[in-house]
C-alpha cells in the first residue's frame, strides 16, 4: 500500500522534469510515459481512468492552441506546450485517480505543509458538503411553500435565505469550534504516523531517477 505523500512527491518530481524539459524528444516522452506506467502499476490505478481524468485539460489546451497556433501555425513551440501540458495532466490525473482527497491532505500534512493550510483544506472538505446540504434543505423547504409568484418576490426570498445561511453557518462554526476545544483542540490537527514500504521508496527513487536522467541528457546530449 502506497502512502499519499510518496505519491505526491513522485508526481511533483515528475512534473518538474516534464516542465524543465527543453525539447521533449520522442524518446523522453516514452520515458515519461513509462514512469507513469510504473506509477500506475505500483499504486494500482486504472490506466483507462487516468486517461479519462486527464481530459480535464482539454479546455485549457484548446485555449493555448488558439492563442499560440493562430499567429504562427503549429510550430515546435506549440508542440512543446501541448506535449508538456498533457504529460503534466497525466501526472496529476494519476495522482487524483490513485489517492482520495482526504488521504492526500494527510500526506501533505506529513510532508510538513503549513498547519493553517492543512486545517483549511480539512475543514473545507468536511463542511463544504454540509453547506451544500444545508442550501439544498432550505431550497426544498422553500419550494414546498413557495410557488414562484413574481420575480421580485423570488429575489427577496433568496436574500432572506442567504442571510439565514450565513447565520446558520456562523453559529454552527462557533459551536463546532467549542466542540473541538472541549476535546482538547489546541490549534493542531493530530498527525497519524505511518510506515513506509519498499514501494514508497521505489516510487520516489523512480521519480528522482527520471529527473536525473533528464538532467544528464541535457548536460551531455550523447
Amino acid at each position: 500500500m502506497l502512502q499519499p505523500e510518496s505519491k505526491t512527491l513522485a508526481i511533483v518530481f515528475y512534473i518538474l522534469a516534464v516542465v524543465l524539459d527543453p525539447v521533449l524528444p520522442l524518446w523522453r516522452i516514452v520515458g515519461y510515459l513509462l514512469f507513469l506506467l510504473f506509477f500506475a502499476v505500483l499504486s494500482r490505478a486504472s490506466i483507462l481512468k487516468i486517461i479519462k481524468r486527464s481530459f480535464f485539460l482539454i479546455p485549457f489546451l484548446l485555449v493555448i492552441l488558439i492563442f499560440n497556433a493562430l499567429p504562427g501555425g503549429i510550430g515546435p513551440r506549440v508542440y512543446l506546450l501541448l506535449g508538456k501540458g498533457w504529460l503534466a495532466a497525466f501526472g496529476l490525473a494519476a495522482l487524483a485517480v490513485s489517492t482520495d482527497f482526504v488521504r492526500l491532505i494527510k500526506g501533505l500534512q506529513r510532508l510538513g505543509l503549513p498547519n493553517v493550510l492543512i486545517q483549511l483544506l480539512t475543514f473545507m472538505y468536511r463542511y463544504l458538503d454540509l453547506l451544500v446540504a444545508e442550501v439544498r434543505r432550505m431550497e426544498i423547504a422553500r419550494n414546498q411553500r413557495f410557488f414562484g409568484r413574481g420575480y421580485l418576490r423570488q429575489f427577496t426570498v433568496l436574500g432572506n435565505m442567504l442571510g439565514n445561511l450565513f447565520l446558520r453557518t456562523f453559529e454552527r462554526g462557533e459551536r463546532v469550534y467549542v466542540a473541538m476545544q472541549l476535546r482538547g483542540f489546541q490549534g493542531y490537527l493530530p498527525i497519524t504516523k505511518v510506515a513506509y514500504s519498499w514501494q514508497d521508496y521505489c516510487l520516489v527513487i523512480g521519480a528522482l531517477a527520471t529527473l536525473a536522467l533528464l538532467g544528464v541528457s541535457i548536460i551531455c546530449p550523447y
Binding site: A179, M180, R183, Q186, P190
Partner: peptide, 19 residues
Amino acid sequence: NDQLFMTTVFEDVAFGPQN
C-alpha cells in the same frame, strides 16, 4: 452535526484521545 468535525469516523473518535 455540531459534534463531528473530522472527515472520517476514526479520526473523529480519535481526536479527543489524541489530544
